[in-house]
Design a protein around this nucleic acid. Sequence first.
DNA 1: CCGTGTCGTTGGAGCGTTCCAACAACGGCC
DNA 2: GGCCGTTGTTGGAACGCTCCAACGACACGG
Lengths: 347, 347
Amino acid sequence: MTAASAAPRGRPTIIDVAARAGVSKSLVSLALRGSAAVAPASREAILAAAAELGYRPNAAAQALVARSSRTVGVLVLDLHNPVFAEILDGVLAGVRARGYRTMVVTGSDAAQERPELDKLLEFRVEGLVLVSHRLDAATLRAIAAETAVVVATRRDVTGPGIDTVCTDDRAGAELAVRHLVALGHRRIAHLGGGDDPVARDREAGYRAAMAAAGLERQITVLPGGLDDAAGYAAARAALAQRHRPTALFVVNDFAALGALAAVADAGLDLPGQMSVVGFDGTRLSGLRSIGLTSVAQPLADIGRLAAERLFDRIDGRRTRARHTVLPAALVERATTAPPRRPTTTVG
Amino acid sequence: MTAASAAPRGRPTIIDVAARAGVSKSLVSLALRGSAAVAPASREAILAAAAELGYRPNAAAQALVARSSRTVGVLVLDLHNPVFAEILDGVLAGVRARGYRTMVVTGSDAAQERPELDKLLEFRVEGLVLVSHRLDAATLRAIAAETAVVVATRRDVTGPGIDTVCTDDRAGAELAVRHLVALGHRRIAHLGGGDDPVARDREAGYRAAMAAAGLERQITVLPGGLDDAAGYAAARAALAQRHRPTALFVVNDFAALGALAAVADAGLDLPGQMSVVGFDGTRLSGLRSIGLTSVAQPLADIGRLAAERLFDRIDGRRTRARHTVLPAALVERATTAPPRRPTTTVG
DNA sequence: CCGTGTCGTTGGAGCGTTCCAACAACGGCC
DNA sequence: GGCCGTTGTTGGAACGCTCCAACGACACGG
């Protein structure tokens, strides 16, 4: 009655293993998943047969019958920006720890994000981690209605089924300003990041901290951007001002590197004549030859925590959205110092 | 006879759509894939029903029956190193262009790589791109026997079914040395990268170019490593030598940044008293505040080409392994200049 | 010695899709 | 006016797996 003597085409299946071990496919399935109900002798025969045939379970078939893919999807805004690469690394670690697989897509341009996410949803990923994104609120909420969603680094769009994990950008910015104020700076300019929601929070923190230090009248925000070139341009504008600032608080590390170059090009001594503080705390800023003082986000933690939150939803079916805000920490390095000619303390 | 009046649990399937449109599931399948054999009226009814129900095809079921997952797997050695992040970006772009999905894993540590790849193989990925790796030759060949494999940046392990795409590391290193020689340098030291196979090629190129320039006796290779700290340490050792070199050719950009810091710490003028050349051409080296002269690899091209090669195998079933070596190009920036006290030309 | 329970094992149904052979309806042709 | 080809549509099998109800064998207690 052993019918399966025909040569198995393609990869061996559970049935091929069963035929070889002389048992039924059901028992193979049981044994392969380590059921205690299988007799030791059968188990050994099955395991041996599987090894000999080079059997590998077919995840698609398992996903189909289990109605769960054991896979999560991740959208990364931009892999070139080390911030996102580092967060992604944390997400991958968190997902791996749970034995799930990860499908990663990047949103090359804003219009691509939706179709890429659709592909993930067709795979029935059990959840989605968005390492930043450019979706409008309605789209994001529609997606959250289909699957669990955790957004990392952004907190502006909320809704049922959308957890967020991010850094306290406001407080972080305040930290930067307080550090500079403590060093004796008064004319502290901010190089902004345009209409990016995260950048807005940092700007708000800057404004608040300046006001708290009694420096409302010194508040200067220069329109910048999130990359090297934008930081360079914004810093040039700052340095060209009538009352040149003695310190620059830049929206992120990437742009701060541009600012550093502008300071050097202007022939100013760093940090003697100009202090610079960045934001993100990427490994980049910590490189010896850069040594940028920066407000560090716990990047790997953000990634790992995002994964954890997702799994809370995947297995615990939690309903209320959770929003986690992690603290930022100032990392003092070589680009900040007291201003050379201390400003006279007024009133 | 319309049985499916029961509320569909979970996501709608093709059968729910069929019931709603009043046709059979077969016709729905046909219509959804755009078959010309479907009557216009039916097509519209089906499309409308699918839209109303929010139907999404189930990729696992499709993969099962089609015996093809339309997914490729990617292993990335280390996301923290911008080189790999940039190549990954190219791979993702290439895969997306073909409408495939991508599963990405990182090999956190060497021992994890194999199990992670096993997970991908269980998903029946149709091919694998390894953006570097730490597998031994036997393991790699065993994997290549199961699925198409393209290795990016490494070329040392070959075998049937293994294509490689990488930069001409030897020639690139020669470019760097020739550049320094042309500037008038003679004492050019190399900060190596240990036993990494790519590092070995670069070292070989360094040795060859030095010999070709009649500088065999100046050849100095200092044991280093692939990161910032290793570059810093190696550079310190180089600078402490009796006959201090006037130029350093460093195994990669990441380590070169460490070397830059060591040069600055030693109080040497850069590039006046010490020139530094890196390798990789990551965006990092191009940042204004760094301006590292570097041998650039076409990183995005490597990624995209790796994806292309993989698809050649996936659909064309090509048998012979193909090895593509892309040219490197020297990008001259601010860290190289003629040596201040030109060495006297001998012989 | 037969009923009952346990242990190990089994065939069949079902997951959501695609593919295929086959079918009904219909018009054109000889 | 029966036959044929075309057009549009259909049910069933298959993909590889898991789950479930049910099975035979065996030991044990009444």
